[in-house]
Simulated assay, not measured.
Amino acid sequence: MSNDQRIDYIELNVADIARSRQFYGDAFGWAFTDYGPDYCEFRDGRLSGGFTTLGEVRSGGGPLVILYAGDLTATLARVKAAGGTIVRPIYTFPGGQRFHFADPDGYELAVYTEVPGK
């Protein structure tokens, strides 16, 4: 399968790379590779991206990044335990459920799961 015209990489400007690593590692189990003091790559097992301190933090802006979780309730608990703020609690939409959260820099992301039979 070609990666042409598919999301390939996501980059977030953050205030503190160590804090972002800790949050996303604790909440989602992501793996990381450091490339100097201003850049860290993350991998979720399917998609890669990066944290950088070289740009302005743009919390609350840009596209909504949506993650998938098989167990939405357990993932919400991990996000809260890792220091995330729940912006919108679990709600149902056609075919699934999701919640929105803000990471330590204020980026809003969502996590969804499919509802069987919908």
Rank of each mutant, 00 (worst) to 15 (best):
D38F: 07
G45S: 11
A81R: 13
I7L: 15
G117R: 14
T73Y: 05
W30I: 09
F23C: 08
Y39V: 13
R6E: 11
V57S: 05
G70R: 11
R43M: 11
D16M: 07
R6A: 12
V79M: 07
P63F: 05
A18E: 15
G106L: 11
W30L: 12
T53G: 11
M1D: 03
R88G: 00
V87G: 02
P94S: 08
S48P: 00
D103L: 09
P116G: 13
G29R: 11
I86N: 02
F42G: 09
Y9G: 05
A102W: 05
R6I: 11
A69H: 06
E114M: 15
Q97D: 07
D71A: 14
A69N: 00
G62N: 06
G70V: 10
E108D: 03
D105R: 10
D4W: 09
Y112K: 12
A69K: 05
R6G: 01
D44C: 12
A102N: 03
A18N: 12
L64V: 10
A31Y: 00
P89N: 12
Y35S: 12
E11F: 06
E41A: 14
P94E: 06
E114G: 13
V87Y: 04
N3W: 04
G55H: 13
E56D: 09
P94M: 03
G106T: 09
L72W: 01
I17S: 11
T73A: 15
R58V: 04
Q97C: 06
G96L: 02
D34M: 08
R43Q: 11
I66Q: 11
G96K: 03
D44F: 03
R46I: 12
D16R: 06
S59V: 04
G83K: 08
G62L: 05
G62H: 04
I90H: 04
T73D: 14
Y39F: 15
V115L: 15
V14L: 08
L12N: 00
A110E: 02
F99N: 04
D38M: 09
V57Y: 03
E41R: 14
D38G: 08
G49V: 04
Y9R: 11
F23L: 08
V87S: 10
F93Y: 14
Y9L: 13
T113F: 05
T85K: 14
I17L: 13
P63I: 05
G84F: 05
P94T: 01
K80G: 00
L54V: 04
G60E: 02
